[in-house]
Design a protein around this nucleic acid. Structure first.
Lengths: 244, 244
DNA sequence: GTCTACAATATTGTATCCAATCTGTAGAAT
DNA sequence: ATTCTACAGATTGGATACAATATTGTAGAC
């Protein structure tokens, strides 16, 4: 992990300190500056942000509750490593919720909405062209989050915030080619369909867009999480037999 | 609040203590034994469950993250009081997610699933007939949660767990008639449609079911959460006039 | 008699302390 | 030489102590 993974904590902010740490870790995961499996020791984070472990814990608890971290008893917190099944569930949930979001946005008159969305895609393209990978990934996610905000349902938007960051983890685990995870060209197409008020086409494009992203992943058949006994059963048997 | 709002904490359980408190508060909200606005002082909960504030706080943080509690700075945690807008968003989110869940369950062969669902509805009816309000409300929610589990997507099921409990808060705030919030007859109809493999009808029934529940609510145009001045404006005016 | 200022109380916010657990290493036994 | 064991360091789990803040109660001033 490079030294500047986190921004410094600004004391003048009115946000409570744990919220700033929460946001910093969330952003780092979203931008793939924090890879799955990276350990997050309470002491280290506390030192970095200038607070005690108590504050760090508050942030970690909430992040773990969203499945962005895993808190292993007595072993500390690590960035989550969603397995293949979980990845499929996240993508399915995205299809469900983003489908509804697209429908809602289409129902509202897309007056100045379109310009905000287009502006975002412009910045996406810029970040991509200047090779600013972190910004590109973040902006790519923000497109979907802005769409969720425009739909005007905070509950669904909140779920999207969780799903987008979990998608970042999935991509960094299972995407082979370092190519476009989430193409801004497809974003542009979706905007055009929205602007035209073509709900059916917008929905279809979003579905295809998510499917295209998912199709780029290479997910191994099974990721056996805890069942070490199962994994090493043959080897253990051989060893015991050899002991006689 | 009656004295036995919470179950005692069982030490032999392998669950970490904060998870037990989390579950206890969650259940109490789901069963409407905890009403919106009730204060949850850390000391009191700690004494009840026999743990220190540290543990209680872990549970409260997670509950607040799910919008089941509100943690006011320096003022402590209270059970959330979702306003009308939030209520509408929760119901909309339920329509979105439960629609997808129904579709998924219909896609899987509903072999023994049906019996589990029917069994649940039987217990619903029993609780209703014996006047066991808490069990009835809980079972009514569990029908939807079981459906979510059967759909086989833990992400969506997790969102449903949150939405069902938030619905409990909404109902206890805005339901006028103490009648059936969530009719088990409608549950039975949904099961029948699922058993028949009629996805379109099942979806429609679920939509109607949620709409029927929402229609029973009487949501005032604006629910001024903290604005006591607004609430007592007439009385205050009368008093001031009398002073002259 | 009412309003205001101050004190007392209660509750939360945060840091720190100690115990429990885990990991790694070095030494002892075979 | 290899394996087992014991100890040491590091990290987390949880409780407690103290500071900060909000609320309530009381007394004095107008």
């Amino acid at each position: 992990m490079s030294g500047d993974t986190f921004r410094p904590l600004s004391p003048e902010s009115q946000e409570p300190p744990d919220a700033q740490i929460y946001a910093a870790v969330y952003d780092a995961i979203l931008e793939q500056r924090l890879a799955p499996g990276v350990k997050l020791p309470e002491d280290s984070l506390g030192e970095i942000f200038g607070v005690s472990r108590t504050i760090v814990r508050k942030a970690l608890i909430r992040l773990a509750h969203q499945s962005l971290l895993e808190i292993r008893p007595n072993r500390g917190a690590v960035v989550a490593s969603p397995d293949g099944d979980e990845a499929a569930e996240v993508f399915e949930a995205r299809r469900v919720i983003e489908g509804a979001i697209i429908a809602k946005v289409c129902a509202t008159p897309p007056a100045h909405l379109v310009s905000r969305l287009k502006d975002l895609v412009v910045r996406e393209r810029q970040a991509h062209e200047t090779g600013d990978r972190a910004s590109w990934i973040r902006l790519s996610g923000e497109f979907h989050l802005l769409l969720a905000d425009l739909a005007g349902n905070d509950v669904l938007a909140g779920y999207m915030r969780e799903l987008v960051s979990r998608t970042s983890l999935i991509i960094s685990l299972y995407q082979q080619s370092p190519s476009s995870a989430c193409s801004f060209d497809e974003h542009t197409e979706i905007i055009d369909a929205l602007a035209a008020g073509d709900a059916a086409r917008a929905t279809k494009l979003m579905d295809d867009h998510i499917a295209a992203c998912e199709a780029q992943l290479v997910i191994e058949p099974q990721k056996p999480k805890n069942d070490l006994a199962q994994i090493f059963k043959p080897a253990a048997l051989a060893r015991r037999e050899a002991a006689e």
